[in-house]
Design a protein around this nucleic acid. Structure first.
Length: 231
DNA sequence: TCATTAAGTATGC
DNA sequence: GCATACTTAATGA
């Protein structure tokens, strides 16, 4: 898109090895779109006609179980590719993506995936690194679900959120998008009540500070202890 | 150890 | 003032 500056992409891993001319080409073929909070970007099971790059904001990627339960698969921070079904040899999206905060994304038609992979050095390897990282995280979480107690899982989830999507604030690091106790319970396989109790206890202990839809981790080391040992 | 039920308060359009 | 977010306690698997 003409109004987008090429410098938006030069620092991002999938494009960092490309010339200005190549980045121009890529931008010229992109559509950019803004998404309001809680807007659906694409839906699980639907034809994957485009792939995306998140420029700003955060996404929540959700899978729906047979009985209609929503499981939060992961959150995506700015700068990452998403909806890259073609990289998985899929023609439908494996999950539904929502804007967790107001978001801005570029997208391209899937038919450009192969040309991108072939023509742009580093694009493929960086894309697969992104996918690999997500796979690692999801496997870690499955293991946690099966083997660890709720407190450890919630502590680990908060740590991942602040490390991937944290912003520095006075006295700690805040999760950079609105997140509810229900959201956290949907990530960790517990209930919003248990998450609420844990956060209340941690707040009393000085480990976190929270308000409605906002969570600040004030003692990362303590959370780290909780996530790895009994506490 | 944790989910569920239930019954309340707080917060924000 | 209503819906949504959150808190807390009690009960029981």
């Amino acid at each position: 898109m003409a109004q987008l500056d090429a410098s938006l992409l030069t620092t991002l891993p999938p494009f960092s090895q490309l010339s200005q001319a190549q980045i121009r080409e890529i931008l010229d073929q992109a559509s950019s779109k803004r998404y309001a909070v809680e807007t659906e970007i694409f839906r699980e099971g639907y034809e994957a006609d485009r792939f995306y790059l998140l420029l700003d904001g955060h996404l929540r990627v959700v899978r729906t179980t047979v009985d209609g339960e929503q499981i939060i698969a992961l959150h995506i921070p700015p700068g990452q590719l998403f909806g890259i079904a073609p990289a998985l040899q899929r023609d439908t999206y494996p999950a539904t993506a929502f804007a967790a905060s107001e978001a801005l994304a570029l997208s391209w038609p899937v038919r450009l995936w192969q040309p991108f992979v072939q023509n742009y050095p580093g694009f493929a390897t960086e894309s697969y690194k992104t996918l690999g990282g997500r796979l690692d995280e999801m496997q870690t979480r499955i293991t946690e679900l099966a083997t660890q107690g709720v407190e450890r899982r919630v502590a680990a989830a908060l740590l991942r959120l602040v490390s991937q999507s944290g912003s520095q604030v006075e006295g700690g690091v805040e999760i950079a998008f609105p997140i509810t106790r229900k959201n956290i319970s949907d990530m960790t396989g517990t209930t919003l009540h248990t998450v609420s109790r844990l956060l209340s206890a941690w707040e009393k202990a000085g480990t976190v500070r929270s308000a409605r839809k906002r969570i600040v981790v004030t003692d990362t080391n303590r959370l780290s202890d909780l996530s790895s040992s009994a506490g």
